[in-house]
Amino acid sequence: MSADLFHATGGVTLIGGGAVTAQDLAQSLEMAAALVAADGGADAALALGQLPDLAIGDFDSISADARISLGAERLLHVAEQDSTDFAKALSRIKADFVIAIGFAGRRLDHTLAALNVMTRHRAPPCVMLAAEDVAFLSPPHLSLPLEEGTRVSLFPMGQASGTSQGLRWPINHIDFASDGRIGTSNEATGAVQLQIKGDMLVMLPRDCLHLAITAITAPTSV
C-alpha cells in the first residue's frame, strides 16, 4: 500500500459510524472481504468483532481505544476539513468496487452527504447498503436481470434523462431534476435496461445487492 492509498483486489467494505448491524457487516464482507473504516466506523467494526485493515479520516470521532487496537500502521490521518470522512476514505480506495455500510439510518444529513459523495466520486463504483435498500449511481449503461415486480427507484442528483426497457413506467422523454421530476417507486416488468445521461441514483431492495455489484462492475460496452 502506498502512503495515501488503500489497494485491494476485488471489493472493499467501507464502514462508517452510522447505523450498522452484524448482518450488514457479514453480508458485505461476503462480497468485499477487505475492511476499511471511515473514522469512527473503526469503533463500529471493533464492536462487531472485526479489526479494520485501515481507518481513514480526520479522527475526530474514533476512540482512543480503537486507535490502540488498530495501531499506528492501520491509521491514515487526513487533516483537512473540507470533506467528510466518507469522502476522505472513498477517494483513497483503489478497488473494483466498494460496499458502504454505516452511512444511513441515523442522521439524515449524514446520509444525504454520503449520497452526494457517491455522486461526485464515481471511482471506485460504490453501493450503499441501508436497512431495506441498496443505492448506487447509475453508469451510462445499466443492465439489471430483475424479477417482475421488483421495486426500482430512480432519484436524480441534478439534471438527468434517459431511456428504459423493462420498467412498468418507462422514463423515455422525461427530464429529471432533483428539484423537479423524480422516478421513485417504479417497478420492473422483467430484466431492466437503462441508458442514463447525468447523475441518477438507483435504489433497489436490499436483496438485490449482488445484482447491483455485478451491474456496476460490468465491462463497458463499446
Rank of each mutant, 00 (worst) to 15 (best):
G18Y: 05
S28W: 07
E30W: 13
M31A: 10
Q165V: 07
R92W: 02
A3R: 02
L209K: 05
W169C: 05
T220R: 13
V202T: 12
T214W: 05
L90Y: 12
A42L: 10
R120T: 12
Q165G: 03
G149A: 05
D175G: 07
A95E: 14
I56C: 00
A104E: 04
L142S: 03
A87F: 06
G40I: 03
G149C: 08
T9Q: 15
D175K: 15
P140I: 02
R206G: 00
V117I: 03
A104I: 01
G166P: 08
H110D: 04
R92I: 03
F6Y: 13
Q159C: 08
D4C: 11
V78L: 13
V98E: 13
T21I: 15
Q193P: 03
S91P: 09
T84M: 11
Q81T: 15
L167H: 00
A26Q: 14
A212S: 08
V222T: 15
A33W: 11
F103T: 00
L108M: 09
I56W: 07
S91G: 14
Q195H: 14
L112W: 02
V78P: 04
L54Y: 05
A72T: 13
P219M: 14
S185W: 02
G16M: 05
T220L: 10
I93H: 11
G71N: 05
L70R: 02
L90M: 14
A114N: 06
V36T: 01
S63K: 12
S153K: 01
A47L: 10
Q159H: 12
